[in-house]
Amino acid sequence: MITVYGVPGWGSTLSEAMLTLAEIPYRFVNVDGFDQPGTQQEMLKKLNPLGQVPTLQLDDGSIMTESAAVALMILDQRPDLAPPVGTPERQQFWRLLVWLVANVYPTFTYADYPERWASNAAEQLQENCKAYRKSLYLWLESQLKAAPYAFGESLTLLDIYICVMRSWGPRHAWFKEHTPKFSAIADAVCRVPALQEVLRNNDILT
């Protein structure tokens, strides 16, 4: 069985929710405190020298990291969780999935720990990252055309990202006001019965 090392509500939530949707069994190990020196950090770094969550230990003992790589692994088993191969939607699915990971995700790394990157201007870096993140979400809103999910009637792994990331900054109220399509997709995912428990365990459900 896959082991997911993570913290409730953190980036590991993406892996948990995607695995749950794909009906792939896993067990969760809470490594809260991994971002500070101590036993949790030491344990995690033995598996993943970067000390990041999510870190997945697969059935064969190998390590998988990076949420986009986890999504690719899941799609090998559940190709139905992305638009069909050969369709324009499939191309946009890959584009937006990679875009979220490459552009939005790093703003949390820098804004959550600004002192690591700009000790003399930590507050300014944090504020700039938060403002930039909002501009990215506004662009994404302009790309969302379908309902109830990002590509219409079929739930995909991109919708999982949207649902989970809405629970992070700038939080629900901002998304509802400024990105209503993004917020509506997240609401639709939150209503999926199979995801109720994992979303509740990660403080996603409101």
Rank of each mutant, 00 (worst) to 15 (best):
K46P: 03
I24D: 03
E127L: 04
S119L: 15
R166C: 15
A173G: 13
L100G: 15
W94S: 01
L144H: 00
P84I: 00
P84A: 04
E16I: 07
W168Y: 08
L97W: 10
A194G: 12
M43Q: 15
K181C: 13
L157R: 05
E197T: 04
L100P: 09
E66T: 11
L19T: 04
G86V: 04
A121G: 08
Q196K: 05
R95V: 10
C190N: 10
I160Q: 01
Y161R: 06
K176Y: 14
Q126W: 03
K181D: 14
D112I: 07
H172Y: 14
T206N: 13
F182P: 00
C163N: 13
E197Q: 10
E42S: 11
G169T: 15
I24E: 06
A194P: 05
Y149H: 05
T107S: 08
I63Q: 05
L205A: 09
N202Q: 09
W99H: 02
T156I: 07
C129D: 03
S62E: 15
F93I: 01
Q77T: 14
A22K: 00
Q126M: 04
N201H: 12
P180I: 10
N201T: 09
G51E: 01
S135H: 11
A184T: 12
A118D: 09
A150C: 08
E177K: 07
L158W: 08
A147W: 11
Q77R: 11
Q40Y: 05
L97Q: 08
G61T: 00
